Amino acid sequence: MPAGHDAEERATALAALREQLADAGGRRGLTRKDIVARSAAAGTPVGATTISKALNARHPAPTWPTVAAIARALGSSDMVLQRLREL
């Protein structure tokens, strides 16, 4: 597989990941501040700046622990976490 194709796939997956996380928060009516509080309550605190960067396409891809912490704070199921991991 050409290297450019792999990069395109990663970029597409990253965009899908960010969209899914943002949509999950929006559907639940959660603000970034709510996500910060929920992540701390879940034992995996994530700061507002980290959340903002994770959801913003102008920043590098978030790490898996950051994605997982945000997803858990949003109340995502283990199945959703697995799907996110596969992106």
Rank of each mutant, 00 (worst) to 15 (best):
L17T: 01
G26S: 13
A42P: 11
S52I: 03
G29L: 08
A54I: 05
V36F: 11
A54V: 01
P2S: 12
A24W: 05
Q20T: 06
L74K: 11
G75C: 11
L55M: 05
V36H: 09
R85E: 10
P2R: 14
E8T: 05
D23A: 11
L84T: 06
D78C: 03
R10T: 05
T50G: 01
H5G: 00
S39Y: 13
I35A: 09
P65H: 08
K33G: 08
G4Q: 08
R85A: 10
D78W: 07
T31P: 09
L14G: 00
L17A: 00
M79W: 14
V80M: 13
G25L: 01
D78M: 08
V36C: 04
V67P: 01
R38E: 11
G43F: 13
L55H: 06
T44M: 14
A11K: 06
A42K: 14
R38S: 10
I51N: 05
R85G: 04
A54P: 02
P65A: 04
A13W: 01
A48F: 06
A22E: 10
M79S: 15
A61F: 01
T50Q: 10
V46H: 05
A41I: 10
G26I: 11
E86Q: 15
E8D: 10
A7H: 05
G26Y: 10
T66H: 06
G25A: 06
R18Y: 03
R72S: 08
V36D: 10
A15K: 08
K33C: 03
A24G: 09
I70D: 02
A7S: 02
L87P: 09
R58M: 03
P62N: 05
S39K: 11
Q20S: 07
T63V: 06
W64P: 02
R32T: 15
N56G: 01
G43P: 14
R83I: 12
P65F: 08
N56W: 05
A11W: 00
D6A: 12
S52R: 14
G29D: 11
T12W: 06
L74W: 13
D6I: 12
A37F: 09
D34T: 08
Q82E: 14
S76A: 15
P60G: 02
D23P: 00
E86R: 15
A16N: 03
R32H: 15
R10M: 02
A16C: 00
P60W: 07
G26N: 14
T44S: 15
L55C: 04
T44G: 08
L55T: 06
H59T: 05
P60M: 03
T12Y: 05
A40V: 10
A3C: 03
I51F: 07
L17F: 00
A73E: 07
V80K: 13
A3Q: 14
A42L: 14
T49K: 13
A68Y: 10
R72Y: 01
A24E: 11
K33V: 13
A42S: 15
